[in-house]
């Protein structure tokens, strides 16, 4: 845990806006620059900032590693699941047309879900990697 009060207060103030910006990039990717990869990295950076300033224990209390690993796999499953849902609705793998009432709305829903899956996987991989790097060191020392 960092003793500098400026760092701790700024981290607490910045945490929510960083995640909000990540969500904006995630769900506004259809209209402006952005998408799952960038948004995932931005959301992960908020959690990594928290872990850097407050330490690994508090970071794991905020975002437990079993949930982290679960969401890590869930992102890929959402992506694949959207593809398989298209197969069950009577079209090819990852053809989003049958997901909505019209092909266009189907495409909208499909792209939104797929980008969400990408963001989930990327952000959780980054958090898990950072935590693994940090805890590898402490595991070696003990």
């Amino acid at each position: 845990m960092h003793k500098n009060p400026i760092l701790r207060v700024c981290t607490k103030i910045l945490f929510a806006p960083i995640i909000l910006f990540g969500l904006y990039v995630q769900f506004h990717g259809d209209f402006g620059p952005g998408g799952g990869f960038q948004a995932g990295v931005i959301v992960a950076s908020a959690f990594i900032l928290y872990t850097i300033v407050f330490g690994l224990e508090k970071g794991k209390k905020l975002f437990p590693s079993n949930i982290n690993l679960l969401l890590l796999a869930l992102g890929g499953i959402i992506y694949g699941g959207v593809g398989i849902a298209s197969i069950f609705l009577g079209e090819e793998f990852l053809s989003y047309n049958p997901l909505g009432s019209t092909p266009q709305s189907g495409q909208h829903i499909g792209i939104l879900l797929v980008e969400f899956g990408v963001g989930l996987t990327v952000s959780n991989v980054m958090i898990a990697l950072f935590n693994a790097f940090i805890s590898f060191k402490s595991g070696k020392a003990s």
Partner: peptide, 13 residues
Amino acid sequence: IGIPNIVTSVLAS
């Protein structure tokens, strides 16, 4: 697709 950002439509669809 009806999406203004062509990059996203190419990437995701």
